[in-house]
Structures are given as C-alpha cells and as structure tokens.
Design a protein around this nucleic acid. Structure first.
Lengths: 115, 115
DNA sequence: CTAATACATAACCATATGCTTATGTACTTA
DNA sequence: TAAGTACATAAGCATATGGTTATGTATTAG
C-alpha cells in the first residue's frame, strides 16, 4: 500500500465532517465517476434545489470540488489538485458505485450533456 | 492495494461523521497506537471528564471501540472485530502519530498501567 | 426586449451537536 | 464502613447543521 504524506489532523477532521453526511458522501461518490450539474443532483436526491446548492457550496468552499459553467449549466467535479484528493479517493473506494443512478437519469432523458 | 467488501453508504457516512470531529479523530488515532483509559484522555485534552465520556460513548455506541474495565479504570481500544475496523485504519493511516502525547503522560507520571 | 431555465443567496426554523455543571454509581483503600 | 478515585449520566445551554420558502442573478430562447 502506498504511503502518503502526513495529513493535518484538524483539517482531516473537517474533510471527514463534510463527507459525514449521506447526501454529500453520495454526491462525492457520483462525482468520482462522472461530473454532474446541479439540476442532475436535484433529480437524483429528494431535496430542494437550494439544499443541493448549499451542499455543493460547502464542498466547493473546502476545495474538494470544482465548478465549471458550460452555457446554462454549472458542472461540479472532484478537484484533482486538492491536497485531499487521494485521501478522498481512498475513503470512497469501497462505496457502492452510483453509476446506476446516472443511468436512470439517462433513461429518463434527464441527463445533461454539453458536447 | 487491497479491495475490500462494499460498504453501505449511509452507515459509512455515520462513521465518517463520528470521525469528523477533531477530538474523536485524535482519540481514534491514539487508540490505534495504544489503548487508553478515560482519565488519560482527560489529561490529554483540554476538556471536562464528562465531555470525554460522551465522545467515548458515541464511539462505543457505533461499535468502533471496545471498553474493558480493569480495576478502577475503564480502558478503551479500537474494536478489531468491527466491520469498519479496516476502513478506519485506512482513514487514519496518514494522520500524524499521537504517540508523543502518551509519552508526555508517561513523563508526567500520569500514564496508567495495569500490569 | 421578454420569458424561461439554471443556479445562488437570504432569511428562517427545527433539530443535532458539543460543551458545561451537578450528581449518581462502581471500585479501591484506609 | 467511610472516604477517595474513576467514570457515567442527566439536565441545561449556545452554536452548528440541514432543511425549507422566497427571491436575486446569469444565461438562453423566442
């Protein structure tokens, strides 16, 4: 197993607190598999659009995720340059894939693509 | 890297929430290196004894730590039979060792030993 | 320009969290 | 048996958290 650099214990606790919410943890797992825009998350979770935005804001403020506007949509993705990127990958590695959820979106014609 | 069994996403979020507190995360790191009794934790953290007990209770209720009474003292240690044991080991692997804290206790004659 | 869509922000509220002090219980020792 | 030590539990309180509804701001389409 790879040995990484030492992590600060307080900063790590803050990252774990962010991941310690079912919605955000699921979001992060999803983003580890696809980038996603806000309206897709709104379709995936039984929750209002502002609630989704507020979760994404916490993740963005911590530097864990990136946002990128493309036209009307803002896509969120894991920030691969974050110093916690590999740590997060390790933490979510054995969580069940959420790809099926995005496939359901596609089946319902709700998937957003900007190609 | 070893591939472990899939973890439930909600249960994992609950474990991460427990670890997402600086005090508990430090406690868990300490317990991964030594077992510890409550009065030692009280000496290690700038916090009242009930506050320490309440953190330990949360960790115990979730099954990630064990308690064992030895005489007057109750020692807490990581529960190696917990289904989250290896997950927790992975999460805390790169945190700085807290052994120096226990060494300070020993230097001050505050370390409890039941040999 | 106007309307619609996507998203963010503000204000509010109920519940959760993490501490405190006070007190109860178990064990040890004199 | 009585007192001291270690720990748990209860109650109270301030703040954090996570949701809601209402509204503001970009961007796109007509």
């Amino acid at each position: 197993m790879q040995t990484n650099e030492a992590l600060d214990i307080e900063a790590t606790a803050n990252v774990l607190k962010l991941l310690g919410d079912k919605t955000r943890l699921t979001m992060v797992k999803i983003m580890s598999e696809h980038e996603c825009c806000v309206c897709e998350f709104v379709d995936l979770f039984d929750m209002s659009q502002p609630a989704i935005s507020q979760h994404l804001r916490k993740l963005k403020d911590s530097g864990i995720v990136n946002e990128a506007r493309r036209g009307q949509w803002i896509f969120y993705s894991l920030n691969q340059t974050s110093s916690y990127y590999s740590f997060i990958q390790t933490v979510i590695k054995d969580l069940p894939s959420q790809a099926f959820k995005v496939e359901e979106l596609t089946a319902q014609g709700k998937r957003i693509c900007c190609d």
